[in-house]
Measured scan of single mutants.
Amino acid sequence: MASQGTKRSYEQMETDGERQNATEIRASVGKMIGGIGRFYIQMCTELKLSDYEGRLIQNSLTIERMVLSAFDERRNKYLEEHPSAGKDPKKTGGPIYRRVNGKWMRELILYDKEEIRRIWRQANNGDDATAGLTHMMIWHSNLNDATYQRTRALVRTGMDPRMCSLMQGSTLPRRSGAAGAAVKGVGTMVMELVRMIKRGINDRNFWRGENGRKTRIAYERMCNILKGKFQTAAQKAMMDQVRESRNPGNAEFEDLTFLARSALILRGSVAHKSCLPACVYGPAVASGYDFEREGYSLVGIDPFRLLQNSQVYSLIRPNENPAHKSQLVWMACHSAAFEDLRVLSFIKGTKVLPRGKLSTRGVQIASNENMETMESSTLELRSRYWAIRTRSGGNTNQQRASAGQISIQPTFSVQRNLPFDRTTIMAAFNGNTEGRTSDMRTEIIRMMESARPEDVSFQGRGVFELSDEKAASPIVPSFDMSNEGSYFFGDNAEEYDN
């Protein structure tokens, strides 16, 4: 783990906690998980779902989305002020799938948001429990990260689609708070800032007046979040320049895209947490497990152990491969979309394939898809080993990566060399080191050039047997250095459309 220093740990961010010791953190995270579980059980009762239907990941996603929508204050306010045809701002819903006479049927349900809020609060001892809501947002974000390569979004903001390893959390809503900021990748933060800068260039009043003052505060806050992700002084200094700019424009845009590229080699610290679907927490609570009393951590053995003992089902389209669908969801559960496939294969105990080789589309089923041909199958979400999630980018030494994705962002704290394609990355730096950030740029390029592919990161860190909950005997895996390590390699994943 990167030293926490003055930073709060993510469990504290996750639970809005002030400084807590490890036991208190485990208890408050457990409380959050228990609340999600209780809410899910109650919703299944309301909807009269069978046990099997309640364990269907598509039903879980609909129920999670309903509660997130019920608590989305800004959108609710907007919907009330701008009524649109056929949208009731006070209601929320989605597809629920039921097994009827041996076939899967889709039923569109509609609930009062007020009623959903009441059920959620009741499951969370009367609190709004925003930490639990954020947790579900991060699960949705991790699922998107594993399912889609955001080529269009990258290109629109002047970045290269091969930089997708920097895009963790790119679909997280803005209201996801400190826990959300911690899991956002460098590219995601750059993209958010670039969008602001572009608006400022096109709209003279963007930075002016009372609204402009708020915009400015948001801009500086985002700059500080991004600065905190960088691990070298030169990158941090460049972020200070971007933040202090009187009138952010093209120079800042250039600096930010430069920094994003540099992060492929001088990786930023991005938190990883295993956020599971509500249909995993519900049955665990129903079986009598007391998360608050037992304590829970999002970055240790607990999620692995929970998945070892969970039964989750998914709808499967006619030509999809259930094992591939399982891999997709497994990666999402562990926030591992940008991790090295060699490491993932070792931990999972079966070969993890790149996205383009998977015969599976996303987990969600569109409303126009034919239910007649839908089957369902068990998702295999178990693992051979477990490993500690990392909050750091690993040290800054790398190795060759593949054509589709030119770097990785480690999820697990496991000893290995970190793949990246130096030639491709360095070719993108057209040696432009003039301007006010020239000395920093020169320094950053120097550090990137001296990074050695064969150097090892996370020295001495290994994986653990599932029986080793105290992480007492690390097993340090050895990897084939020459092997392909990137998930979005030469990829044809669908595009994420909101």
Rank of each mutant, 00 (worst) to 15 (best):
L154E: 02
S9L: 13
D340T: 02
G394Q: 08
I57Y: 02
I365F: 11
F304G: 04
L466H: 11
M426W: 01
S269L: 11
K227H: 03
S402K: 03
R246L: 09
R195T: 07
R216C: 14
V329I: 15
G460V: 04
S3H: 15
G200Y: 02
A403R: 02
G102S: 15
S345F: 05
Q20A: 07
G17P: 15
V67N: 09
D340P: 00
T62N: 13
H140C: 00
Y313N: 12
Q231A: 14
E339T: 01
F253T: 06
W104C: 11
V183F: 09
Q398T: 08
D439R: 01
S413W: 11
K325Q: 11
L353A: 00
L166I: 14
G485C: 14
A233F: 01
R150L: 04
S69K: 02
V363P: 15
R208Q: 01
N483C: 08
E192N: 07
L49E: 05
K91D: 04
T130K: 13
I445G: 03
A284I: 03
A146I: 04
G132D: 12
T134N: 03
N205F: 05
I444F: 11
C333R: 04
A179C: 14
A123W: 02
Y148E: 05
P95Q: 09
L276S: 14
V194F: 09
T442M: 06
Y281M: 07
Y385R: 14
V329T: 15
F39G: 09
G404K: 00
R204H: 02
S310H: 04
A251N: 06
L49I: 14
I388R: 06
W104Q: 04
N250D: 09
P453Y: 06
Q327M: 10
S407P: 00
S402H: 14
V456K: 10
N76Y: 10
M159K: 08
N417M: 00
E495M: 14
Q311P: 00
R99I: 10
M196L: 15
R118D: 00
P474Y: 06
V67F: 08
G362S: 01
S438M: 05
S392C: 10
Y313M: 05
L298F: 06
R208N: 04
E294I: 00
I116L: 15
G209H: 01
A336K: 02
